Amino acid sequence: MTYLIGLLSVVFLGLAIMIVSKSIALSKGIQGADDSDARVDGANNGNAFGFLVFLVLGSIAAAWSFLHSQPDFLPVAGSEHGLKTDQMFWISMGVVTAAFFLTNTLLFVFAFLYRYKKNNVATFYPVNHKLEIIWTIIPAIVMAVLVFTGWRIWRDITKQAPDNAVVIEVTGHQFGWYVRYAGNDDNKLGNQNYKLIDDTNQIGIDFTDESSFDDFTANELHLPKGVPVLLKIKAQDVLHSVYLPYQRVKMDAVPGMPTKFWFVANKSTDEMRAELGKSDFNYKLNCTEICGRGHFGMAITVFVDEPEDYKAWVAQQKPFLTQNPDYLAKVPEKLKGKAQKYAPAEAPAAESDSTQAAAGAAPATASLRRR
């Protein structure tokens, strides 16, 4: 490809030099030579045929470039809505390509047919309402159809997620992603508060909300195949952007403004590996918003599992409270009984405030009695 670009550059440079030299010769001929009309006719004929040659060679080069680059346009779609957006992409590409070749063909052919000739007289053609109506209405109809079709697809993508959607929270930070799952018990993510962020609770899970008790975190993103997934997207510091190229998912992660995107992955990791012929292939979640010096490494591995495998993986995960029993102390008194379910087996039961107070007061009471 590099050699082709270099060759074309040399060809175009040569053509430019030739045109400049001919222009200089024409100007000299017009100023003093009797055969200036012949020179002008010859130059115009040469340019006119040059236009046709450029049209043919340019069309061949454009077609070759398109066909050569087509495999890199879009990766294989791995979601249900991705099939629709890909179809819309290729329809739009077809319309634009047809318009490109039509208009450029007319441009170069007209330049050839209506080049300067000594005995030609220009026709005064001030207006043609019918022609103007045709070339206004047809593009307007085509654009309206494309816009309406695209709007319908976007409406379906951004509508309310189904009630059975798996809820997963993705939080961007410099330079990585925190992934929180809604757990096995309620499929609800608990509240979050940036004031609660510390070295362990890095996303500020709020344990005054009982929906947080079964939430768990992971360093990778697991998605069930064929099941709606609702991504709740946040950012802690600067603007990031969640990008799953194969699933056709892209949504900005904006500090202070949660966003969301739901979709259905329709090809498991194993199926995509078989289709691509790459046994080591893995889906990736990337950041597509330049967010600092470490932006290039802001990616995590994504696994699309069969529903049974996904359930088995989730069942193996331990809630954040189980892995960090110290946070049981942050649970309100009235919810400690429910939270105790998630305490590790070896951890002592979380003491209530009244029990702790009574334990602290007992020695003092005993000493008073001895007095």
Rank of each mutant, 00 (worst) to 15 (best):
K234R: 14
M251P: 00
K267P: 00
D252F: 08
F261L: 03
S241P: 01
K225N: 13
H222I: 09
V238E: 12
L230Y: 05
M251D: 01
S241L: 00
P245N: 14
L221H: 05
A235R: 04
Q236E: 13
V238G: 03
D252W: 02
K225D: 10
F216W: 14
K225V: 07
H222E: 09
Q236F: 07
A253Q: 05
L244W: 06
K234L: 14
K225Y: 03
G226W: 06
V227I: 15
V238W: 03
K232N: 13
V242G: 00
T217I: 12
W262N: 08
K267N: 03
V227S: 08
P258K: 04
E220W: 06
K250N: 14
N266V: 06
A218E: 14
L221W: 04
L221N: 04
V242E: 02
F261V: 08
P245G: 02
L244P: 03
E220Y: 11
P255E: 07
P258M: 06
L231M: 05
H240M: 05
V242A: 08
F263C: 04
D237C: 10
V238T: 15
P245K: 10
F263P: 01
M257E: 13
L223E: 06
P245M: 07
K234Q: 13
G226T: 13
R248V: 12
D237N: 15
P245A: 11
M257Q: 13
V242H: 04
K260H: 05
M257Y: 12
F261W: 03
F216G: 10
L239Q: 10
K267C: 04
S241N: 15
D252R: 04
N219D: 15
V242Y: 02
L244A: 07
P224R: 08
N266M: 10
T259F: 00
K232W: 02
V227L: 06
A235N: 02
K225R: 11
Q247L: 15
K234I: 00
P245W: 00
K267Q: 05
K232G: 01
P245E: 11
Y246I: 04
M257D: 11
Q247W: 05
S241F: 00
A235K: 05
K267G: 00
F263Q: 07
T259H: 07
P228R: 07
Q236M: 13
F216A: 05
P258I: 04
A235G: 11
K225W: 02
P258Y: 09
L221V: 10
D252Y: 09
L239W: 09
L223M: 07
F216H: 15
L221F: 07
G226A: 10
V242C: 03
H222R: 15
M251K: 12
H240S: 12
N219L: 11
V264W: 09
